[in-house]
Computed example of a mutant assay.
Amino acid sequence: METLAILGASSQIAKDLIRSLVRDGQSSLLLYVRDCEAMRAWLAGEFAGQPHAPLRVAGYDEYDTVPHDAVLNFVGVGDPQRAAQMGGDIFAITQQFDDLALAGLRRHPQRRYLFLSSGAAYGSDFAAPASADMRATVAINALQPQDYYAVAKLHAECKHRALPDLAITDLRVFNYFSRAQDMAARFFITDMLRAIRDGSVLHTAPGFMVRDYLHPQDFHQLVRRVLDGPAANQALDCYSAAPIAKPELLALMQRRFGLRYEIGETLPGAIVNATGGKPHYYSLNRKAAELGYQPAFTSEKAITLESAIMLGRPAVLDQIMDAK
């Protein structure tokens, strides 16, 4: 059985992956976090009475004291409001934990390293979706705070490509959605969910955008493909079976969940745009398909399924399951 180390194991996307890895039963997990007691409490509640592979929780000061086959680095911020508050500190945090993983990799070059990157590494120019030929753009003479997150990810990826003999895979996540999403986070999707939950009206600007929401099962599939595939130094864009445009997303949430919304000028501060505006924030780069990755969920299906569970709408959930 392989042993996987997970840095930042308390993040939402890491917890979702832990659930999937426990279910597939192929790995023992070393979980590294700041608050060990909180992580142990979560594990006790999540897997109580369930047989599973070994799960060990430790602080970061213990990293690399236990042998492992691969390390997955989830340390970072997933909420745009937190990213905005963090400001330039994002550089030091990203580098600190990236260097921690790389130091272990240099001591054990047979080990694999999966780094959670972001579509933001391409920069802020998403007038068109990302592609294999797209260049990263950085306003080097006019850097703004919303650029810091993207530059931190790009810097880490550049470091990784400069180590071609090491098996490092950067997974660029564009948008990700699961039932464990923090409803207080400032994403467009959570703004909609709060409006539905509270019975309020969502006020949204008229601008057009397209987003690609990755489902946890597809993310797990991609991670599994990387771990089971040939060792490589590479970057892979994450993608669902199909993205969704803002008008279709609003209509979907209105039809399925009764969302009420108004399109017009939004109040100052109503939108948290910590990484810049991106009208077409998704990728057409299908390099991951070379590993056998085939997403099972469209953005529409992922959002409908996970939202129905979050909002406690069994009727909608039954409709989705009946449609399979």
Rank of each mutant, 00 (worst) to 15 (best):
M1E: 08
L4S: 07
G8Y: 07
A9Y: 08
S10C: 05
D16C: 08
R19D: 14
R19G: 00
R23W: 10
Q26V: 01
Q26C: 11
S28T: 05
L29V: 10
V33R: 02
A38K: 15
A41T: 13
A41Y: 03
A44N: 10
F47P: 09
A48G: 10
A53C: 09
Y60L: 12
V66S: 08
H68Q: 10
L72M: 14
N73V: 01
G76K: 02
V77Y: 14
G78I: 08
D79Q: 05
Q81G: 11
A83W: 00
Q85N: 12
G87S: 12
D89G: 15
A92S: 14
I93F: 04
Q96C: 07
F97V: 07
F97N: 11
D98C: 10
L105P: 01
R107A: 15
R112D: 00
Y113H: 14
Y113M: 13
S117P: 08
S117D: 06
S124G: 14
D125N: 15
D125C: 10
A127P: 01
S131Y: 03
A132T: 08
I140H: 08
I140N: 03
N141D: 15
Q144Y: 02
Q146S: 12
Y148N: 12
Y148M: 14
V151G: 03
H155N: 12
C158F: 06
C158D: 10
K159E: 09
H160N: 12
L163N: 06
P164G: 06
D165K: 13
A167M: 04
I168W: 09
L171Y: 09
R172I: 07
F174H: 02
S178Q: 06
Q181D: 09
Q181G: 08
M183W: 07
A184F: 02
A185W: 12
F188D: 08
M192D: 03
M192C: 15
R194P: 07
D198K: 06
L202S: 03
G207L: 09
M209H: 09
R211G: 02
R211K: 13
R211D: 01
L214A: 05
L214M: 14
H215S: 05
P216A: 08
Q217F: 07
D218P: 06
H220I: 03
V223I: 14
P230W: 03
A232P: 00
N233G: 05
L236P: 01
C238H: 04
C238V: 04
Y239E: 05
S240Y: 04
A242N: 02
L249A: 12
A251H: 04
L259Y: 08
E265L: 12
P268I: 09
P268Y: 07
V272W: 01
T275D: 03
H280C: 15
Y281N: 06
L284N: 14
L284I: 01
N285L: 04
R286L: 11
L291A: 10
G292S: 07
Y293D: 01
P295C: 11
E300M: 03
T304V: 15
E306T: 06
G312Q: 07
R313L: 04
Q319F: 01
A323Q: 13
K324Y: 13
